[in-house]
C-alpha cells in the first residue's frame, strides 16, 4: 500500500511538527511519498504539465493524506490552490480517478482539543470544521477516515511525542483504523524492523516478539471459545 502525504504549511521550514512528522514518516520507507506543497509550488500556480504530474501521483496512491495546521478553521491557501487546480472535474467526477481510495486528514491545532466542542470557546468540533473535505471525499467516492488531530504539539512532553509517533505511523500506514487484533500484528511487523545491525538485541527482541505472538494467539483462542459458547446459548 502506498500513501501520499500532501503537506500544506507556509512555515514548513520552521514548523517543529511538520519536521517531526516528516522524519517519523521516513520509518515506513518507500510506501510513503511526501509532497510539501509550499516548497514545490511556492507560487501555488500549476502548469498543465504539473497538473498531469500531480494527478498521476494521486492515482498511484492507495491512501491520500491532507496534512496541515488549521488556519482560521481551514487549511492554508496552498491546499485550496492545489484542490482547485489539480482536482479537476474531469479527473474527479468524470474519470472517477480517486474512487475507492482513502482520504485521511491530519490537522494541527494550537488550542486544547476540548475547546472544539459545542459551548466551549471554539464552539464547533474538528469533524464539523473539516466537513468540506468529507464532502469532497464523498463526491470523489473516496473512503473518508476519522481525522487525526494533533493539538498543542509544542507543549507535548517526551511520552506524548512518542505516542504521537505511533499514532501517526499507524494512521498513515493503514487504510482504515485498526482493530486491536490488527494493532498487535502491526506492532510485531514494526518490531521486526528494529536492530537489523545488532545480533544480540535482535535475539532479545525475537523472544519478545514470540511472546507477543503467543499471547495474540491465546486471545484469539479465548475469543473463539467464547463465540462458540455464545452460539450454543443462542440455539
Amino acid at each position: 500500500m502506498t500513501t501520499l502525504i500532501i503537506s500544506s504549511n507556509p512555515n514548513y521550514q520552521d514548523s517543529g511538527l511538520n519536521q517531526f512528522l516528516k522524519t517519523s514518516s521516513q520509518w515506513l520507507g518507500n510506501s510513503i511519498e511526501w509532497l510539501q506543497l509550499d516548497e514545490i509550488y511556492p507560487e501555488a500556480k500549476y502548469t498543465k504539465k504539473q497538473i498531469e504530474q500531480e494527478q498521476s501521483r494521486l492515482q498511484q496512491a492507495d491512501k491520500i493524506i491532507f496534512q496541515f495546521p488549521m488556519y482560521w478553521y481551514s487549511a492554508p491557501a496552498s491546499l485550496k490552490s492545489y484542490l482547485d487546480q489539480v482536482m479537476t472535474n474531469q479527473f474527479v467526477n468524470i474519470k472517477h480517478s480517486l474512487q475507492n481510495k482513502s482520504l485521511g486528514i491530519v490537522v494541527g491545532i494550537g488550542k486544547n482539543l476540548q475547546s472544539y466542542q459545542a459551548g466551549a470557546s471554539e464552539n464547533y468540533t474538528i469533524s464539523e470544521l473539516l466537513r468540506p473535505y468529507q464532502a469532497f471525499a464523498l463526491a470523489a467516492q473516496m473512503k473518508y477516515l476519522r481525522p487525526l488531530t494533533i493539538n498543542q504539539f509544542s507543549y507535548m512532553n517526551e511520552a506524548e511525542k512518542m505516542k504521537l509517533i505511533t499514532s501517526y505511523l499507524n494512521f498513515i500506514d493503514n487504510i482504515i483504523a485498526l482493530t486491536f487484533d490488527e494493532k498487535q500484528a502491526w506492532i510485531i511487523k514494526n518490531l521486526k524492523k528494529i536492530y537489523n545491525d545488532d545480533e544480540t538485541k535482535k535475539d532479545r527482541l525475537a523472544m519478545i516478539i514470540d511472546q507477543i505472538d503467543l499471547r495474540k494467539a491465546e486471545l484469539e483462542e479465548l475469543k473463539d471459545n467464547i463465540n462458540l459458547i455464545k452460539s450454543q446459548e443462542e440455539n
Binding site: 511520552a159 512518542m162 505511533t166 494493532k183 506492532i187 528494529i194
Partner: peptide, 15 residues
C-alpha cells in the same frame, strides 16, 4: 533512536 523508542514503548502498551 526516538522512533524506535516510540515503537518499543507502544509494544509495552500493547502487552
Amino acid at each position: 533512536s526516538f522512533i524506535q523508542r516510540a515503537i518499543l514503548n507502544e509494544a509495552i502498551d500493547i502487552v
